[in-house]
Simulated scan of single mutants.
Amino acid sequence: MSFLVVPLVKFGLSKAKKHHAAKKQAKQADQFQQPGYAPNYGPEPPIQMSNYPPNVGPGADIQYPTNAEPISKSTKLMGMFVSGVRFLQFVFGLTVIGLYGKDVRHDHEDGHTWHAKWVFAMITAFLATGTAAMHIILPFLTRRVNPPPNPKLKLPQFVWEFILCILWLTLFGIFGKMYIGVYPSATKDSGKRDTDSTSTSTSSSDSGLGDVSKINRMRHAVWIDLVNLMMWVVTASWVLLRWLKSRRAADGAAMVDAEKAEQI
């Protein structure tokens, strides 16, 4: 009888195991269907702190280096040159404010009406000085901005600097016509200096050019206006070139993306 009992026992054990496994699977299926169920796959392995960088605590913002293209030496030198020009724009703008502001202040103290030409010179110098100061400060503020400023902003920047170039050109034309070639001359009459005569046929007092000190100051201011004009033409051209370069790069990237899409 033993040869019949042993197979029956084995058959019963296998059936019991299969029934137990089927019952367990059905129970797990019911748990998965219940709302808010979170499966537990066993204890999580401990975090190996040795894989973390040193001096980094919980919640630290870890920034991994990106594969950015290295900046060429010529680009760095050009950036330094433009930064130097921006600083000179700021200094020469303040100089123009001081030269023309002296006459405006005198008119204000004497109760006279401000001359429109001198007011125009002050407004031009203020706009240029403020723009130069903004270009000096902004690189330090936007250094940590991620993502960097949009290259499309270069176009309105160029438009504004082109307007400043027009203002400086107009200012140079106005005062250049008034004071270029005009020199205060001294005549010996009883040992006194005649401050009302100039090297031109019209006296300085009749033409409204002012006294000797004002004429000399305005002659210097005219050439400083020309220097300002040249510097703003340089920076406006630099901004235009950068905008054109970024536009070509964007067009090239768009063409590459279109070719990839066609291949897919």
Rank of each mutant, 00 (worst) to 15 (best):
S14H: 02
Q34A: 14
A38P: 00
Q33R: 14
K23D: 05
S50W: 03
N40K: 10
V9R: 00
H20C: 08
M49H: 03
Q28G: 04
E44T: 04
K24D: 03
A16D: 06
P7N: 06
S14I: 12
A38W: 07
A38I: 14
P54Y: 10
P7Y: 00
K24M: 07
V6N: 04
L8Y: 02
Q34T: 11
Q25V: 12
Y41G: 14
V9H: 00
S50R: 06
P43Q: 14
N51T: 13
K10V: 15
Q48T: 09
P35G: 04
A21E: 01
A29Y: 01
K17R: 15
Y41N: 12
P35H: 07
K15M: 12
Q28I: 14
G57Y: 06
V56R: 09
V6F: 02
P45D: 12
L13C: 11
S2F: 06
G36C: 02
P39Q: 14
P45S: 10
P43G: 08
S14P: 00
S14D: 04
G12L: 01
A16C: 11
A26E: 11
M49R: 06
S2W: 05
H19A: 15
Q31K: 13
P54G: 08
Q25H: 10
K15I: 10
Q48V: 07
Q33E: 15
P54E: 15
Q31F: 05
H19N: 14
G36D: 05
K10R: 14
H19D: 12
Y37C: 02
G57L: 10
Q33Y: 03
P35T: 02
E44G: 03
K18T: 03
K17F: 08
Q25S: 13
N40L: 11
S50M: 03
Q33T: 10
M1Q: 07
N40W: 15
G57V: 04
P58S: 13
D30S: 15
Y41C: 09
Y37G: 01
Q34Y: 05
S2Y: 04
H19V: 11
G42T: 09
K17L: 14
F3M: 11
Y52F: 15
N40P: 00
Q28P: 00
E44D: 04
V9N: 00
N51S: 11
A29T: 05
P53Q: 05
S2T: 09
H20F: 08
M1K: 10
N40Q: 12
I47L: 14
V5H: 08
K27E: 13
E44Y: 05
P39G: 10
E44R: 08
K18S: 08
V56M: 12
S14V: 12
V5M: 07
E44I: 05
Q48A: 14
F11H: 09
A29E: 13
P54I: 09
F32D: 11
A29Q: 15
A22S: 12
F11K: 15
H20Q: 12
V6Q: 05
K27H: 08
N40V: 11
P53S: 07
L4R: 13
M49G: 04
M1V: 08
G42V: 07
V5F: 07
